[in-house]
Design a protein around this nucleic acid. Structure first.
Lengths: 188, 188
DNA sequence: TTTTAATGTCAACAAGGCTGACGTAAAATT
DNA sequence: AATTTTACGTCAGCCTTGTTGACATTAAAA
């Protein structure tokens, strides 16, 4: 037996091994709450940090070719998810000031990635849509991040993916969770 | 039967229900790969976005009282996790330039949250540690985020938490994964 | 007709990234 | 012993993306 450093059970090559071993829930870990120690919780926070960092980096590489940043990405993304959204709606989703949004939005409209049209019912509104070029870019951005997800999801298996999503959904502020989930649920 | 919008199976009140139902892996979902559609992957990405946003917001509130930002948080956090780390080590973890780090680091040292001492073996190095005041702050920041994690972890259960962590770990770049996991594994 | 709402825009500022250049002290190498 | 490399700090300037405050326009609502 070689000396081994004590670990906290984090590293596990295949999630499937622990999730899909056929044992009923509670057979391992029992009723104890060792998975709720400060250390375990901190690990969760830190993993979020590293995983998020590397995930956004995928898109960042595509964006910098065109001189865009994450602000442009978010803007494009939510116009993609909510075609015809008015500026106010986008402001609510993004949670930034209109001056801040307008700066990147103006750029994207000038560059021909986003189309801004007067609202038919309320002519004060500007309804936002992606142009073909805009959709091409946003799909490329999405594909870059999806590729990372796909690899991990495939390794982890459907049960682990479901658990992953449930935990993430639970982390969203209760006040905005429904809106966020509705946005996410929409078919694309 | 009231009309119901088709969903993608994202919303599920208790992850435990799907994970801990005692059925062996593969009994549900079988061998099909419906959980790997572009839509499912996109949902994963978007959930990361929303969950991360709300998680860091907890700490942001504590930071703004003292006029600090996320840069200060990251700096404090990793000095906490790696007591006695030299500036170069911190630069590697954070992935920023020394000019950028130095700006916040200088502030934290001046404010008495971080102590910088000449290295005993290599006197060129400055080894960084938290002062008592620094540790107080970093623990408060950690506690704020842990609280959110604890609530979600408790609801999801140990199997779901394990799956959550495994998926996140898989999302980290392969090149930096081992280093990140080693950092995370360390006892606090 | 007056008020309110949706949008755009100008100016000024701050945080926190970046590059480039330069200086100093100390370790490592020749 | 002399030279080179490393670790660190700092100055100056630029960029993105956030902020406030002020103001104008248009159109809907009261």
């Amino acid at each position: 037996m070689s000396p081994q450093r004590a670990t906290t059970g984090l590293v596990q090559t295949h999630a499937a091994r622990s999730l899909a071993d056929g044992r009923p829930a509670g057979a391992r870990g029992g009723g104890n709450l060792l998975f709720l120690t400060d250390q375990q919780l901190r690990q969760g926070v830190e993993l979020m940090f590293f995983a998020y960092r590397d995930m956004v980096a995928d898109a960042d590489r595509l964006l910098e070719d065109r001189g865009y940043g994450r602000a442009h990405h978010r803007c494009l993304h939510f116009v993609w998810r909510r075609p015809g959204i008015p500026v106010t709606g986008l402001l609510e989703i993004l949670g930034v000031t209109k001056q801040s949004l307008n700066r990147v939005l103006r750029q994207l409209v000038e560059d021909g990635l986003i189309r801004s049209e007067v609202g038919p019912r309320d002519r004060r509104q500007r309804l936002l849509d992606l142009t073909e070029e805009g959709e091409t870019l946003v799909r490329a951005l999405s594909a870059a991040q999806n590729e990372r997800m796909r690899r991990v999801f495939l390794e982890a298996g459907p049960e682990a993916v479901q658990a992953f999503k449930t935990v993430l959904a639970g982390m969203i502020d209760e006040g905005s969770r429904d809106r966020a989930l509705a946005l996410i649920e929409d078919q694309g």
